[in-house]
Amino acid sequence: MQDEPLLEVRDLHVWFGLRRWGFGHAGVVRAVDGVSFTLRPGEAAAVVGESGSGKSTLAKAILGLNRPAKGQVIFEGKPLDSLKPREMRWYRSQLGYVQQDPYGALPPFMSVRRILGEPLVINKVGSKPEREQRIREALEEVKLTPVEDFLPKFPHMLSGGQQQRVVIARSTIMQPRLLVADEPVSMLDASVRVEILELLQKQQEAHNLLLIYITHDLSTARHFVQRILVMYAAKIVEQASVEQLLDNPLHPYTRALIAAIPEPDPENAATFKDVPPGEPPSLLHPPTGCRFHPRCPAFMKGICDVKEPPDFEPQVGHLVACWLYERGQVES
């Protein structure tokens, strides 16, 4: 862990203007609103949040697909917004992207061979036989064997799991150093999910990738990453190692989340879950102060609804944005 950080996100804001015909701007959706974190090469981190929490927007900002309104994404010490087009192309070759819907992520009119060849052709890698070699290796790595059978296939001929493996093969064929996986298994069947996640983990370990696993599912994150960042309403409310976070969740939202996640247990049927009332706020008009305060069981009037909590670090490496930890105490 002595490595230099590979990726640094510094006070990142991504806003979307809502356009309304004839009425000018109808407002700004603050999809990511002041997010900071640092990740090292070879690390596997999960960004956990509900839909609409801004986690996918964060992923796209890291991938350079969104333009931040404020703040920076810094890769290897180079801020993305300062990259020239040529350097941007280099940056894109340094990252892989795995999307949620494997079928949608593959052009339906291209064969597997062409799909995998596209990044190589675009980045002018190797000669034709060299590219073919790379494509075959990539397919072998994701265990789509015999390779011959899969090369000429079109996406619709593959099962969901196989499609997602093609996506993974494509995302790693440029041998990137950063892999962003946005809900890579949420559209797959339970029995296949683990397979895909194991594959991602294997790729991450084999190539010493920085893996950012975006998910709503804390339980899978637990098994496949070392660090978890919890996102709520466009902000990161807590970040810690998996053990710290699960054994000792600090933020009231994280606690509620953990409590709400069911396990296959017949006891469940007999008990009611303790769920915080209400729903996540609108990102058009987020609440003042801490964004969780209207739902928070530990709400402190005059503090939580007034000032936004900064990140506190009550334990080493365990950051939490909550006024409860202003003085650094740790409840357990």
Binding site: A190, S191, V192, R193, V194, E195, E198, D217, L218, S219, T220, R222, H223, L246, I258, I261, E263, P264
Partner: peptide, 18 residues
Amino acid sequence: KLMASVPRLRGGEKPEFI
């Protein structure tokens, strides 16, 4: 197998796939 494929948040083994 299906039960073993469920990732658990508390305790439990690492999930397996079928």
